[in-house]
Amino acid sequence: MAGIFDTHTHFNDPRYKEEGIETKEMIEEAKLNGVSRFCCVGFDVPSSKLATKYALKYQGVYCAIGVHPNEAHLMKEKDWEEIETLAHAEKVVAIGEVGLDYYYTNEYKEIQKEVLIKHIKIAQENDLAVMLHIRDKDDSEDAYNDAYEILKKYKVTRAIVHCFTRGYNLAKKFTDKGYYISIPGVVTFKNSTDLQDAVKKISINHMLVETDAPYLTPQPNRGKINTSKEIVHVVEKIAKIKNLNKHDVIDATTTNAQKVFKLG
Rank of each mutant, 00 (worst) to 15 (best):
T211G: 03
T211I: 05
T227L: 00
G223I: 05
T217M: 03
T165R: 03
V67N: 03
L151W: 01
T105P: 08
F43E: 06
I225Y: 04
V130W: 01
E28W: 13
E71P: 05
D212T: 05
D136V: 12
A64V: 08
K246F: 01
A257H: 03
L56P: 10
V115S: 02
K113W: 10
M131V: 07
V186S: 10
P14V: 02
K240H: 10
C163V: 03
D194R: 14
T193W: 06
K242M: 11
E71D: 15
Y179E: 11
M207T: 10
P220M: 08
K57V: 02
L151V: 05
I225T: 11
E77S: 11
K201A: 13
N191K: 15
V234M: 07
E19F: 13
K53C: 14
Y103D: 08
T9C: 13
K24D: 15
Q196H: 06
V260N: 02
Q196W: 06
Y168K: 09
T165E: 05
D146H: 11
K57S: 09
I250D: 08
L50P: 00
Q112I: 11
P46N: 10
I111M: 07
E90R: 09
N70L: 14
K246T: 12
K177E: 12
E71L: 13
R135H: 08
V186P: 02
Y104R: 11
K246Q: 08
H247L: 14
K78G: 01
D251M: 09
T188C: 10
A198W: 14
V260L: 07
V92A: 02
K155D: 14
V186C: 08
L216Y: 09
V234Y: 06
Y144I: 10
E22P: 10
D44Y: 06
Y102V: 11
L86S: 01
S140G: 05
K152R: 15
L50A: 02
D13L: 05
L32P: 01
F261N: 05
A94C: 04
D139P: 01
T105E: 09
L195N: 04
Q196C: 09
V61K: 12
Y104D: 13
I83E: 00
N33G: 03
H162L: 10
F174N: 13
E125A: 05
Y102I: 07
K24W: 09
K229I: 11
N33R: 05
G185C: 03
A30N: 04
E141L: 15
T7S: 15
V235M: 15
T254D: 03
A94S: 08
I150Q: 07
L116F: 07
N226Y: 07
K57M: 12
D139Q: 15
I65H: 00
T52D: 01
F174V: 04
I65E: 02
N221K: 14
V199C: 07
E125Y: 00
V35L: 13
L100S: 09
H68P: 04
L116N: 14
A64G: 14
E149H: 14
N226M: 04
Y168V: 07
K78P: 01
G96I: 11
D6F: 02
A123R: 06
D251E: 12
A64Y: 01
K78E: 15
V115M: 05
E77T: 09
K240T: 10
H206P: 04
C39S: 10
V93A: 00
A129I: 09
G34L: 06
M1I: 11
